[in-house]
Write a protein that binds this DNA or RNA. Structure first.
Lengths: 190, 190
DNA sequence: GTCTATAGCCTGATAGAC
DNA sequence: GTCTATCAGGCTATAGAC
């Protein structure tokens, strides 16, 4: 097994465990066991446990942050831009081997040693709230507190990812479209 | 401080910590510190850490399980019964001193020692899925996989509770109604 | 009913052989 | 690059004084 492969496998298995058990409760022994190596071998690939979760967060968040910012600045109806972003986000997440939803949920970001990551996520959330506000101002969306709206979008995304993990998905793009439709129905004025 | 008060305070503080950090990652020292007693004093009120989480789950789930079952068996449109249930659920949860959402989310139920509780929750979820199926069959709801629909309802409930914890809520009933409306818009055919 | 002290186990991380 | 062996510290839970 090459170093790069082992490293990737650590990220995959750790992300699943972080999602299932939380960051603090996941032990390096559990991660190592899932990767099929002994616990001290992890520290050849990562300096410490924190570095593993930091890399997962970066992989999840970096492209999503760029895309949501672009969606905020593009012309056209906010509802269409939100829908387009969600389709991209869900279909990307459905294909990922790493359980990205560990960012949105979980205890990792509440730990003070990971405050820097929490700040990055807040920036992402601000863009999402901005996009929702645009839709409310234009009369497309119901009058909801944008911060509640943002929580709704994030939690619906998590629900979708949990579903995709358990059920076997034959068409990830169709599922992503249906998820985005679900959110937009909830936000749109009837 | 009387025993009953201390016991209640343990449940309140533990539920908040379980929600924030997860069950496994929350230490008895942290709970004791939040209650303002020393760690071994906890074990005068509860035989072990597991007993604390079990009591929180029972308090949260017992009445909700009865109400969702009734909602399944009542006559009338499924959309109205789901809406009514959600208004009750959200307004009850908004008023609770114990952070009940620790049931829906978190790592506790995945731990094998709490498999019995996980079974109870599954029964609750089956009723919720049943109610959603009724709405799909009657043509009121969009054609969604009921197990995905159930995940959506649960995650939107969690998002609402998280919002209610951070923002100061002036009218919990209105917020509960708005949350139920949000869910129903997402489910109803347009 | 709460405390101090502590047992016994598990944790993240290091040292050094191969 | 992975291993065995191990350390220092944190964990749940118990014992026993007050």
């Amino acid at each position: 097994m090459e170093a790069a492969d082992t490293r990737q496998e650590i990220l995959i298995q750790a992300s699943r465990l972080f999602k299932r058990l939380g960051y603090r409760a996941t032990t390096t022994r559990e991660i190592a066991k899932a990767v099929n190596i002994k616990q001290p071998s992890l520290f050849h690939h990562f300096p410490n446990k924190k570095a593993i979760v930091e890399e997962i967060f970066s992989l999840s968040l970096n492209e999503a942050a760029v895309r949501i910012e672009n969606a905020c600045r593009t012309a056209g109806p906010a509802s269409e831009r939100l829908h387009q972003y969600l389709v991209w986000d869900l279909s990307t997440l459905h294909r990922m081997p790493i359980a990205m939803s560990a960012i949105y949920t979980g205890d990792a970001l509440k730990s003070p040693e990971l405050a820097e990551l929490a700040e990055k996520l807040k920036t992402f959330y601000r863009s999402l709230e901005d996009l929702i506000s645009q839709g409310i101002r234009s009369g497309e969306f119901v009058d909801i507190d944008p911060s509640l709206g943002r929580l709704m979008v994030a939690s619906i995304t998590i629900a979708h990812l949990e579903y995709a993990e358990e059920a076997t998905i034959e068409d990830p793009d169709r599922l992503a479209r249906e998820g985005a439709d679900f959110v937009l129905r909830a936000f749109r004025k009837t």
